Simulated scan of single mutants.
Amino acid sequence: MSLTDRRGSFVTDGIARPTLLLVHGAWHGAWCWEKLTAVLHTDGWRVRAIDLPSAGGRAGMQDDAQAVLAELELIDGPAVVVAHSYGGIPVTQAVAKAGNVSRIIYLASFQLDVGDSLLGFYGAPVPPQPDEFEAVPDNPVALFYGDVPLPEAEAAVQRLLPQSTRSFSDALTEAGWHTVPSTYIICEDDQALPANSQQAMAERSGAVHRIESSHSPFLSKPTELAALLSKIALDTDA
């Protein structure tokens, strides 16, 4: 049985659950969460996923953060935000202003601090033409979907979009993880964001978990990932 209590929490079988907001990474869209969302719904979760305007558009990171914040404002009750890859940057910015986020879950994600940007993380200069696009990387199957069945990986590649260059150069002005609890999930076989880089950022989180997967466990291991997200979202110390 599912219902909503007076605080807006989603209650399933007597357990009050926050809403899960899923935020994708660069070049992707809300579509990438479809397999995971189906498992989470079966497990009794209320889930929302958004499309960031920087994927396929000229929006910057701050625009993405505003989109995340606007989605959070539509959620009645507490929310746990799951941020993947680049999505961790606008989520970090947005959560600083949101009042209903109980936890951030960084999934192979950029957990950066004030003044940081994605390009800055790699020591790359600000591009002279920030209004351009970053093309989909070469060999995206190996980079993003190494343990995803090949037909499914190739279908995912067809849905990738050019990414706004500005989103990679915009720097954080606030960092929500300083005041909101955070958990990091390291993807150990990640070819896009190596595990050692994830580990360095994960030290900023209150708890760290690991999953043996490529950069995209929501496609390769949705059941395992759903179980881990459920554990974290319901455990105040996870």
Rank of each mutant, 00 (worst) to 15 (best):
R48P: 14
A65P: 02
H41R: 11
E73A: 12
G57S: 03
A70Y: 01
H41Y: 05
E71R: 01
A55T: 11
L52I: 07
D63K: 08
A65T: 11
S54M: 11
V47G: 05
P53D: 02
D43F: 02
T42E: 13
A65R: 04
Q62Y: 12
R48H: 13
G44E: 09
L52A: 08
A67G: 03
P53G: 05
E71L: 02
E73Q: 13
A65C: 04
A55G: 10
D43E: 05
W45V: 07
L52P: 09
G57M: 09
D64E: 11
L52C: 08
W45M: 10
V47T: 14
Q62I: 15
A70H: 08
L72R: 00
R58W: 09
S54F: 04
A65K: 07
L72F: 05
A67C: 08
D43A: 07
A49T: 14
A65Y: 03
G57H: 04
G56W: 00
Q62L: 15
A59R: 06
D43M: 01
E71P: 08
G44W: 05
D43R: 12
L72A: 03
L69T: 08
M61Q: 11
A70K: 04
M61E: 10
I50D: 04
G44Y: 10
E71D: 08
A55V: 13
D63I: 01
R46I: 15
G57F: 06
H41N: 12
L69I: 13
W45T: 04
A59G: 12
G57T: 10
A67K: 02
A70F: 02
L52Q: 01
A65D: 09
I50Y: 03
Q66N: 13
S54W: 09
R46A: 13
D64Y: 03
D51Q: 00
V47S: 08
E73F: 03
H41T: 11
G57C: 05
G56R: 00
V68N: 01
T42R: 00
T42H: 02
R48F: 15
D51K: 03
D63N: 12
A49G: 10
G57A: 05
Q66H: 12
G44N: 13
L52V: 07
E71K: 01
Q62P: 14
G44Q: 06
A49K: 09
A65S: 13
V68L: 05
M61F: 14
L72M: 10
D51T: 03
G56K: 00
A55W: 00
T42M: 07
E71Q: 07
S54K: 02
V68P: 06
G44F: 10
A70D: 13
G57E: 04
A59K: 09
P53M: 05
A49D: 06
I50E: 00
D63M: 13
D64A: 12
R58S: 13
M61A: 14
G56N: 01
A49F: 10
M61G: 15
I50S: 05
A67M: 05
E73P: 00
A59I: 15
I50T: 11
V47H: 04
L52E: 00
A55D: 00
M61W: 12
G44C: 11
L69Y: 11
Q66A: 14
M61I: 15
T42N: 06
H41S: 13
L52G: 07
E73I: 01
V47N: 08
R48S: 14
D63P: 06
L72G: 04
Q62H: 14
L72C: 09
E73T: 06
